[in-house]
Design a protein around this nucleic acid. Structure first.
Lengths: 130, 130
DNA sequence: GAAGACATTGACGTTAACGTCAATGTCTTC
DNA sequence: GAAGACATTGACGTTAACGTCAATGTCTTC
């Protein structure tokens, strides 16, 4: 079972040690310790990847934390009401993500239009002076 | 041809006047003036909507500005080389957006899994005490 | 013409997400 | 055992994206 030091994990993920410690302060992950030193497991790495994906999608760390909380909620000891509550949160998230997906597709369409326009300009005739 | 005052446009877009003035400072839009007062045209509104969409997608104002610059670049007076340069930028953007789209779909898949798991827990049996 | 409603331009404040630097500890290596 | 390499915990600094507040102007309305 593979383990990482902080600098190993950071270089694999392309972030700084400051960042990962900052996330720990914010309660986004809780690595084991070997003495004073942090030791990261595969699970920690996966969690960091979730966080970084959230960032790429433009979420704030608070929102990412909420997502992670949904992600590793333990349904076992939950009451029906709690599960229903969680389900609601999940559905809200889904709605927001689908909105974002629409925005994205719209933007991609626009880029395609611009691209076509550029290609059109380039294909009119190789050079004017001909 | 419809025109807006700053507070009209802001309330339609759900933002504050501070925000729109801030964007103007950053060079993201340049409304007309009637005396000292800003007057917004339909084009300004459309541009603001582009900006807000960019924000929803998690872009920084700098990136949004670059996008807008692509968006209303005037190809007419451009040299072939300039158009090719612009094309490159557009393609870079497209690559980044498609990455983001993949991230989004992955997250949606995960949400679906969580949702199913919740539904599963709820459907086992209505209540335990039966 | 005084009172509101709305606008303007500074300018300083605030929060999130880190960067940076100092002081200190531990572990290997020559 | 001194020198690096890597780690730790503060703590203060920085940047983006606004919020807030003061001073002031203009325009309507009673």
């Amino acid at each position: 079972m593979k383990l990482w030091t902080i600098s190993e994990l950071c270089s694999e993920l392309g972030i700084t040690t400051r960042t990962i410690r900052f996330y720990e302060d914010k309660g986004l992950l809780t690595p084991e310790r070997l003495g004073a030193n942090r030791i990261y497991s595969y699970k920690d790495k996966a969690r960091m990847q979730l966080i970084l994906r959230g960032k790429r999608l433009g979420f704030a760390l608070d929102e990412i934390k909420e997502y992670i909380d949904l992600y590793d909620a333990d349904l076992g000891p939950m009451q029906r009401e709690q599960i229903n509550f969680l389900l609601e949160r999940v559905k809200e998230r889904r709605v927001a993500l689908i909105k974002q997906q629409n925005d994205l597709q719209e933007m991609l369409r626009e880029l395609t239009l611009i691209e076509d326009e550029c290609q059109g300009m380039l294909n009119v005739r190789p050079t004017v002076k001909g």
